[in-house]
Nucleic acid binder design. Sequence first.
DNA 1: TGTGCGATCCACT
DNA 2: GTGGATCGCACAC
Length: 223
Amino acid sequence: MGVGCPSSSDQSAAFPLQNAADLLSIMTDPLPRSFYLRDTVDVAVDLLGKLIVRKLPDGTRLSGVIVETEAYVTGDPASHAFRGQTPRNAAMFGEGGHTYIYISYGIHSMLNLVTQPAGVGEAVLIRALEPVDGIDRMRELRGGIDDRYALTSGPGKIGEALSLTVKNDNGLDITSRPSPLAVYPAPHPDAFEVVTTTRIGLTVGVDAPWRFYIKGNRQVSRR
DNA sequence: TGTGCGATCCACT
DNA sequence: GTGGATCGCACAC
């Protein structure tokens, strides 16, 4: 499969944010802390369509639109916070507006955005992005794969494509502009439809409808 | 100190 | 559709 230009009839690549001019027009300020100090399910839904901007140490800017999320709340047996605070999940109990990154299956770095005030222990897992800036660099980081739609169509892939590690990126404040990772408002917040469904990749808590994605987006991960 | 497993991905059948 | 990779953490002993 090639790297061809999406045609206007290709609905799978229909997210409207497609060029640097669009990007620059919304580079105002990151979403404020108050955005994250709310109900976690509301934050998970409202994060859809928002832009994650990643600055690499060499100055390269990577970005992508959030197209799939999952909410992890207090009392959820699938949540890392379910058994209380430990050194591993401490960042999840931090104040909303920070990252919580952990290693899954020994190899994948998973990106979560912490919600609620400090001490609560809730977060939103970012499961899929639609790449916007730095696509060539993301390809390199993902081992040179050609398929654009496989770059960031899963939580482990996002960690690799954005070069996120527990050591360097856990507990980052994502509400400040100088941060290596920040989330910006969407330019066209009403240009998509949100689908609500059950979460995937779990062994417990499988029936809770806490997974959200943008309808029709090809980046959304599969069971 | 030891052991089992997981909010996954990919190659292979 | 299935199984291997791979390792930090939680929990048992």
